[in-house]
Every structure is written in C-alpha cells, then in structure tokens.
Amino acid sequence: TGIVNVSSSLNVRSSASTSSKVIGSLSGNTKVTIVGEEGAFYKIEYKGSHGYVAKEYI
C-alpha cells in the first residue's frame, strides 16, 4: 500500500512508460494498493483492473 504524494493529480498509465496511454488520474493523498514493480513504475490496482504510476510520486 502506498499514498499518492502530489499536490494536484497523478496520471495512471496503461503500461510502465511515460509514453503509454493515460487511463485515469489519482488525487494527492489517495491510498493505492501496489501489486508489482516495473522499472520506475509501480503496478497498482485501479478500477477493477491494473494501472501504472511513477514510483517517485508514491
């Protein structure tokens, strides 16, 4: 489990790349469930599926 550490919002992406499609966003202080790691990204549970967020903001 981690907490989103941004002042505005954090993009949730379809894969572990900054060039991948943005599938949603999370507000600061949102609790997320981390299910894996891939490079500079965490794989998280997101809306019944999975998404990826940059580690530096969790």
Rank of each mutant, 00 (worst) to 15 (best):
Y42Q: 01
S17M: 07
A16D: 03
K43I: 14
V35A: 05
A54P: 14
K55Y: 02
G24V: 03
S14L: 13
Y42I: 04
S25L: 14
V6P: 08
G2H: 08
R13H: 15
I58M: 04
N5S: 10
G48E: 09
R13G: 04
E56L: 11
G39S: 05
I44Y: 00
E38D: 10
R13W: 15
I58E: 02
E56W: 08
E37I: 10
G51V: 03
T30P: 03
T1Y: 09
S49M: 14
K43Q: 08
V32C: 05
E38Y: 09
K43W: 05
N29M: 14
S9D: 10
G51I: 01
S27Q: 14
T18Y: 15
S15Q: 13
S19T: 13
K55H: 03
G39C: 06
N11K: 15
K55F: 03
V12S: 00
T18C: 15
S7N: 11
S15C: 10
V4R: 04
V32P: 02
K21S: 10
N29L: 11
Y52Q: 00
G39N: 08
G28A: 14
H50Y: 15
T33Q: 10
Y46V: 03
A54E: 15
G24T: 02
V35G: 02
E45S: 08
G24H: 02
E37M: 09
S17K: 07
V4D: 03
V22S: 07
V22P: 05
S9Y: 13
S8Y: 12
V22F: 07
S19Q: 13
T1D: 08
V12E: 00
A40C: 12
E38W: 08
S19E: 13
K47E: 13
G36K: 07
A40L: 12
L26D: 00
K21N: 12
K55D: 00
K31S: 11
S9R: 14
F41K: 01
N5R: 11
V4F: 04
G2W: 06
A40V: 09
S15E: 14
S7E: 10
K31Q: 13
Y46H: 05
K55C: 04
H50D: 05
Y52R: 00
Y57I: 04
S17T: 09
S17F: 07
H50F: 15
V22C: 07
A16H: 05
V4G: 05
S7T: 13
K31G: 06
T18G: 12
E45R: 09
Y42D: 01
V32T: 02
V32R: 01
K47Q: 13
N11A: 15
K31R: 11
T33M: 10
V53K: 00
V6M: 09
I58C: 03
Y52L: 01
S27L: 14
V35I: 15
V4H: 05
Y57D: 08
K47I: 07
T33A: 08
G24P: 01
K47M: 15
T18I: 14
K21W: 08
R13N: 09
E56Y: 10
L10F: 05
S49W: 07
A16S: 07
G24A: 04
I23G: 01
L10H: 03
A54C: 12
S8T: 14
K43C: 09
S20G: 15
Y52T: 00
I34K: 01
L10Q: 05
S17E: 08
K55W: 03
Y42H: 03
V22W: 06
A40N: 13
G39Y: 05
G48H: 07
K43R: 11
H50Q: 07
K31Y: 14
N11G: 09
Y42C: 03
T33W: 11
R13M: 15
K21E: 15
V6T: 14
V32I: 09
I44H: 00
S17P: 01
L26C: 04
V6Y: 05
S17N: 12
K55G: 02
A16G: 06
T33G: 04
Y57S: 10
A16C: 05
A16P: 15
S7D: 10
G24M: 05
I23Y: 03
V35M: 09
V35H: 05
A54V: 10
K21A: 15
S49Y: 10
I58H: 02
S49N: 09
V22G: 03
T18N: 15
T30H: 07
S25R: 13
E38A: 08
V35K: 05
K21Q: 13
L10D: 02
S7M: 10
T18F: 15
A54W: 10
S27C: 12
V22L: 08
S19Y: 09
I44F: 02
S20W: 05
Y52A: 00
E37A: 08
G36P: 00
F41G: 00
R13P: 00
S15V: 06
H50M: 09
S15Y: 08
T18D: 14
L26V: 09
T1R: 08
V4C: 06
S17Q: 08
G51Y: 04
V53L: 04
E45Q: 09
S19R: 11
K21R: 13
A40I: 10
Y52I: 01
G36A: 08
G36F: 04
G28W: 13
V6F: 07
G39D: 07
A40P: 09
T1K: 09
S17A: 08
I3T: 11
I34E: 00
H50T: 11
S27Y: 11
T1G: 08
S19D: 14
S7G: 12
S9N: 11
G28F: 14
A54M: 14
G36E: 06
S27E: 14
K47N: 13
S8D: 13
V53Q: 00
F41E: 01
E56S: 08
K31T: 13
S8V: 13
Y52N: 00
V12G: 00
E56F: 09
R13S: 06
A16Y: 04
K21T: 13
T30L: 07
T33E: 07
V32A: 02
G51F: 03
V22I: 14
V53I: 08
S17L: 08
K47T: 05
I34L: 05
T33K: 12
G48C: 08
A54K: 10
V32S: 01
V12T: 01
G36S: 08
E38H: 08
K21G: 08
K31H: 10
V35Q: 06
V22K: 06
I23H: 02
Y42G: 00
L26I: 11
S49I: 12
T1S: 12
I34P: 01
S25F: 14
S8W: 14
N29D: 09
S25W: 14
F41A: 02
N29R: 11
S17V: 06
L10S: 04
S17R: 07
T30A: 12
A16T: 07
K55V: 04
I34N: 00
K43V: 12
Y42R: 01
S19G: 11
K47Y: 10
G28T: 13
E37F: 07
S20M: 03
V32D: 00
E38T: 08
I3S: 06
E45L: 15
G36Q: 05
G48S: 08
K43G: 02
V12C: 02
E45V: 15
G24S: 03
K43Y: 07
G39E: 07
V35D: 02
R13D: 01
A16F: 04
V22A: 06
N11L: 15
H50L: 10
Y52P: 00
T30R: 05
F41Y: 11
V12L: 03
T1I: 14
S14H: 12
G39I: 03
G39P: 03
I58F: 06
G24W: 05
I3N: 06
N11M: 14
K47S: 09
K21V: 12
Y52M: 01
G28Y: 14
S20Y: 07
K47W: 07
V35L: 15
G48R: 06
V6G: 11
I44P: 00
T1A: 09
Y57E: 08
S15G: 13
N29Q: 12
T33F: 11
G48P: 05
T1C: 14
G28I: 11
G48Y: 06
G36V: 03
G48A: 07
N11W: 11
V32H: 02
L26P: 00
G48F: 06
L10C: 12
S14C: 10
I58L: 06
S15A: 14
A54N: 09
G2F: 06
S20C: 05
K21L: 12
E45N: 09
S27A: 14
G28N: 15
I44C: 01
S8M: 12
